[in-house]
Amino acid sequence: MTDDTKNKDFSMTDETKKEEDGGNQPTQRKNKYSLDDLRLTQDFESLGGSQKILTTVPIRKPDNQWFFRVRGGDYRAAVFVLEDNDSRKENYIVLPGIAPDIEAEIMRKTLHLAINRRGDLFLLPLKMPGPDGRTDRWQESMGQAIEMAETAWVRVKGNMGMSCYDIFQANGNLPDPQWPDMSFEDIFRIAVRDKIIDDENHPLLRSLRGEI
């Protein structure tokens, strides 16, 4: 803020004094104060206000209209993922060794922390190569987009004919995103809060086994 006189108060009620008071006597007489002394803060952020609480971080691919950025470094995690095809392909994180009987259904994915231009965070899943080390063009192009998104705003759109994502880089000189001041562990915890399969009797596993 440009204001260096915050917490100065000459205002009228006790209640107000408690909020912004610098302990000055509101009825004190004339000419004691310069205009600079009389200046009250306009930094309403520091006086309270509110703070956005991060409650939801979806695990999803970016919408084909979003430009997004990916936070590099340690802001990613390799996990086992089970897709629930009945509920809009929701990604469930499966703890290792929980369900050896349905291993074929489970994929290894890396979740990358990403953000769109609206400032909404999401974990972008990228399928890892199979045991044979092979991957497909969808994953290759998405991996390429993720790499580019570490330094530039990009958008991806599925190209069915080519079986890959077309990647678009923003032309404008856009500012870098404002990442939240949180560790990846904290963000990850929010993202997977109700998406962890840590029990072999999880309804999704039972459903896949045909038990329910």
Binding site: F10, S11, M12, T16, E19, L35, L38, R39, L40, Q42, F44, E45, L47, G48, G49, S50, G119, P175, Q178
Partner: peptide, 27 residues
Amino acid sequence: PKFWKWSQAVLDHAELRRKLWTTYGWY
């Protein structure tokens, strides 16, 4: 973005404390 954050803080303050003021004390 900083302007919008500040602007939101102004709105939050008005909502929470039910008052605003100017640099020279007009409430």
